[in-house]
Structures are given as structure tokens and as C-alpha cells.
Design a protein around this nucleic acid. Sequence first.
DNA 1: ACAAGGAATGAACCACGGTTCACGTTCTTG
DNA 2: CAAGAACGTGAACCGTGGTTCATTCCTTGT
Lengths: 218, 218
Amino acid sequence: MAYRQTDKVAARLADTRRSILDAARGLVAEGGFAAVQMSEVAKKAGVATGTLYRYFSSKEALCRHVFREVSAREMGKLAEIASGDEAASERLVKVLETFAGRAVQGRRLAYALLAEPLDVNLAEERSFFRRTHAEIFAGILEDGIENGELPKTDVRIAAACIAGAIPTALIGPLAPESHELDSNPDRVVAEIVKFCLAGAGIAAPQTQQKTTERRKTA
Amino acid sequence: MAYRQTDKVAARLADTRRSILDAARGLVAEGGFAAVQMSEVAKKAGVATGTLYRYFSSKEALCRHVFREVSAREMGKLAEIASGDEAASERLVKVLETFAGRAVQGRRLAYALLAEPLDVNLAEERSFFRRTHAEIFAGILEDGIENGELPKTDVRIAAACIAGAIPTALIGPLAPESHELDSNPDRVVAEIVKFCLAGAGIAAPQTQQKTTERRKTA
DNA sequence: ACAAGGAATGAACCACGGTTCACGTTCTTG
DNA sequence: CAAGAACGTGAACCGTGGTTCATTCCTTGT
């Protein structure tokens, strides 16, 4: 008999898989999921198109993997902050600033994850992603309400409002001009966060003024 | 010479055009723009597919017309309220309630207009639609700030937040269950509006709506 | 070195749905 | 009523891009 996969081969396969995922992620970051064409992925990864199908059963499967990888990282960061032991309002501020901040700085990717038109299969993936966000927000809000930091409200609804407001205000047609976001990201983020905090019942502290500075809230 | 279109014919043509638009609108209301297939439109309108192209140069053009017709009606209603002469905060409440209220009751259509994945051509149309919303909101906010009703804020950003929060909280994966929206639309709308008003700096009053109770927060 | 597979290849295939167009029908006018 | 023009028809066409598969290239164990 002959042939049993050896470690070296397994490693090479893993490498190829990685480079396929990387190639796909790159395309997503450049032009969203719409820009992912199997032939392009293959070219970028340095393999033939047929090879892609040895690693992923379909384009959809590949895209789903990419979506998960990227979104998991983002959710992880937020979840970590959310599980901290500061006061709820403190954690809320941090989570919102992180969420918004990362979205501005990686706008194209954020667009793909949050706003880009995509088909049902991936839309499911996105639903999960967004729901997780909302849950993170809702959890913090609940904490804050329980211990009296925040006024009573329907946390699911407030969380959904936040999860809608931030992306809309940062990416897509209602967002400020790109150069504004580039030259003044902190101000925009601060303003959006202020809106959300106020919506949730936290009065705005009056620190954030011109630029360059970031408040620490109360 | 021979033939010049007669009134009767013109009327028939107009009828056909109407029925095509209605058929397309119907499909959109049922399943979003994704469900619009030329062959289906033709069947529903009672004409042949080729006929569609005598009235609209392409599927895209047809969809654009449908989008405009529907969205124009919505924007009109909001614009009318916005141009009233009540106090800014009053108008804001009305506009938000109308916006949210209509979105809940025509959820499928609202989804198509506001949230459904659609391709670039229609996305442009949507951008216009949403931008107009935001401008309406922003205009009212500006009024309110000018005469001191509202605290100073970046109105464009606040408007974008509102324009993002409402649809997200009402339609799509973060919205309450459909039966909740059916059985209790007013409560949900009120809650969302409350969030947005608070975000804009209006403390929640305990005015409108019937259900049980409303908290007043601080 | 060689046989026995696994892995990689990329051109060909195919489904899908928008669009076209050659033809038949209906309308207008002389 | 005949001629000409517009209107209506729907089966065929076509571009796109994901997917397949016969073939070639490599790897493994004797």
C-alpha cells in the first residue's frame, strides 16, 4: 500500500487553506463580499479555482468562514469589555466607543459586515453577528438598570436602537464624508456615543469639545 | 400618412403602465425587490415579458420607478409634518411616531425600502430616500436648537442616529418578534421614539399612548 | 525506482434570469 | 377597406460567474 498523509503535507494543506481564507478576506476588505469571485480568490491565493473546492464546498461556505473569522474577532473584543467589572455606564461607554471606533477605522470591512447588501446565506451570519452585539449592549443596560445607574427601559429595544444608530451614522449614505471621518474620527465617534448614551438615559458629560481629546465620563 | 396616437389608446397604454407598476409593487410588498422577476411581473400584470420593455427600458428602471413611487409617498407625509408650525419638539415627536408607526404597519414594504439587500442602482435610490429622512430630522433638530428647545448637538449625526435606530429596532433581525409588533405596536414605537428623543436631548414626557404605563426617567 | 493514490489544475459546463426580436395583432387614416 | 404604423407576444438568446471533472503533478511506502 502507499500513501498516508504526512505531517508535512497536512501543514501544507493548512497553509493553503489559510491563504485561501486570507485571499478572500482581503477581497472582502477591499470591495465587500460582492467582490469575492472564486476566480479572483484563486488568483490571489495562488491556486487554481478548482482547488478552492477541495477546501470549501462552495463559495457560500467560504464566505461564511470569512465572515465568522472576522466577526468573531470583533465580538470578542466587545464581549471582553462587557464582562469587565466596572460600573455599567462605564462599560457601556467603552463598548460603544470601541464598536464605533473600530468601525470607523476599518470602514470597508465594517461595511461588509454590517451594511453591505448580501444574500440570504450570509445574511444569516450577519444576523447572528448583530444579535450578539445587541445582546452585549442589552446585558450592560440590564446591569445598569438593576443597580439603579440607569433608568428603566426596554433594554432589547434600546440595544437595537444603539446597534442601528452607530453603523448608520458611521457608514453608508448617512455617514459624514469620508475625509471628515479621516480627519476627525474622535469627534464623530464621541458625538454618536453621546447620542446613544443619552438615549439610554445617561446624561452627556460636558467634556468633549473640539477634538483630539477624549472624555472619561463620570 | 397614417396613425397618430388617439386618446383611447393613450389611456389604455397608461392603464397597462399602471398595472405593470402595480404588479411590481405588489411583488415588492410580498417579497422585496429580490422577488421581482420580469417574468413574474408580466404574469401578474397580464402581459408578455416583452411588453414590459415597451414601458420600462430595463428591470432596473422599473424597480426604480416603483421605489420612487412608494418612497415619495412616505417622504411626503413626513415632510408635511416637519413643515408644520408647532414647536420643534412637538414636530419631532410626530415625525418619529409617524415614521416608526408606518414602518411597523407596512413592515414588508419598509424592509424593502430601508433594509433589504439590493444592488447598486437601487441602493442609490435608497440613499436618496434615507438622506431625505435624515434631512427632515436634522431640519427639525436645528429649529429646536436655534430657539433653545434642544441642547446643541451635531444635528447631522443625531439625525443619522435616528434614521438608523428606528428601522433597526423595528425591522430585521434585531426587531422584536413579529407577533409582539402585531399585538403591541404602540408600545414598541413609543419606546423607540423615547430613545431617539432622549438621544436628541428631549427628556421623555409621559404623554402619548394608551398602554399601561410609561416611566418618566430623569 | 515504481506503483498507488491523493492533490492540483483550469477549461468546459451549466443555471439563471434579464433582454431581444421576428412575427402576429390592433389601431389609425385616406 | 387597405395600408402603414404602433403595439403585443414569448420563445430564443446571451452574459455572468459558480461548479465540475478528466487530466496531470506529487507524495508515500515498498
